[in-house]
């Protein structure tokens, strides 16, 4: 029983990190209809930024976070202006290929700047140890959960109460109407990329504290896609529920099924199996809107 509960708890913690990454993806998709394959790479860059500020420059945690967010803002603005702006109105594949090309360039830049090395900063981030009976909750992931919840709440408030947040929600609804109402759509696009970058970088710093940073960290983006599809691509709430569901399911499946299979490694393909099942039976996800097509 402890084993099962522990699986649930670590699954939940893992799911929150997935959620954080998936939210960045959903925001871009909602506002600018672009599927951002490079979201996992923002996470990887975030991890390296965390290393640079925390270890190389010895900044305190709050200053490192601020510095990383500042870099994320610049990165988001540059990426949107240089690569995605020319893609407005282009077919889906072109936009996706653009984000893939972007991810490859980011990978190259990470190799150039950090040498693609494995960097760790164990024990630099603050930790909270929480033990409930036999259960123990991983301290770094607990931090991850707390930060994720804070970020999600901030984003929800942002979308509900601020002007730019409302503008973003409106753009998601209908670009042309928004334009006629005097809102600059390009600014909204830029804003959505900036937010996605910030969210990704924060996620990267958390993950970096847990397992260190290396280029393959970007693969975590793949799992976030499964979360997004399960939750419905345009629902932030869906991303939260689906993130937790997938985290828990993945852990439970790995815990109980892996020892039965000769080759193991089920945790890695599990999200993809979920993806296929969702796509066949419920393509718009659990909470997504059903798109209506017209000729």
């Amino acid at each position: 029983m402890t084993f099962f509960l522990q699986l649930m708890v670590s699954g939940f913690a893992l799911g929150m990190v997935y959620t954080l990454i998936a939210i960045g993806f959903v925001i871009i998709l909602k506002c600018s209809k672009a599927f951002n394959i490079a979201q996992g790479h923002f996470v990887m860059i975030g991890g390296y930024l965390g290393f640079t500020f925390l270890v190389t420059f010895h900044l305190p945690v709050w200053a490192s976070l601020l510095a990383a967010v500042a870099v994320a803002i610049i990165m988001g603005l540059l990426i949107e202006r240089l690569t995605l702006r020319p893609m407005v109105g282009q077919p889906v594949l072109a936009v996706i290929m653009m984000t893939i090309a972007l991810s490859v360039v980011l990978e190259g830049l990470a190799t150039l700047v950090w040498g693609g090395e494995y960097k760790t900063y164990h024990g630099v981030l603050p930790t909270i140890t929480l033990k409930v009976g036999e259960l123990s909750i991983p301290p770094e992931t607990l931090i991850g959960v707390i930060v994720s919840i804070i970020v999600v709440i901030i984003l929800m408030l942002f979308f509900r109460y601020t002007r730019s947040g409302l503008a973003m929600m409106a753009t998601a609804e209908d670009e042309q109407v928004v334009q006629s109402a005097g809102i600059k759509v390009t600014t909204v696009y830029a804003l959505s990329w900036v937010i996605a970058c910030i969210v990704g970088v924060i996620g990267g710093i958390i993950l970096g504290g847990v397992s260190g940073v290396m280029i393959p960290l970007a693969n975590v983006g793949m799992k976030a896609f499964a979360v997004v599809l399960l939750g419905g691509v345009n629902s932030i709430g869906g991303a939260i529920v689906a993130g937790i569901m997938l985290g828990v399911l993945e852990n439970v499946a790995a815990g109980y099924l892996d020892p039965l299979l000769p080759g193991g490694g089920l945790a890695n393909v599990f999200p993809f199996v979920v993806m296929i099942i969702v796509l066949i039976f419920r393509p718009h996800g659990l909470f997504g809107l059903v798109e209506i097509e017209r000729i």
């Binding site: 020319p86 653009m98 090309a101 972007l102 991810s103 490859v104 360039v105 190259g108 150039l112």
Partner: peptide, 14 residues
């Protein structure tokens, strides 16, 4: 290698 290939695709798309 990575940067070149990424840039080639990026520039072609634009």
């Amino acid at each position: 290698g990575l940067i070149m290939r990424g840039l080639v695709i990026l520039l072609f798309l634009i």
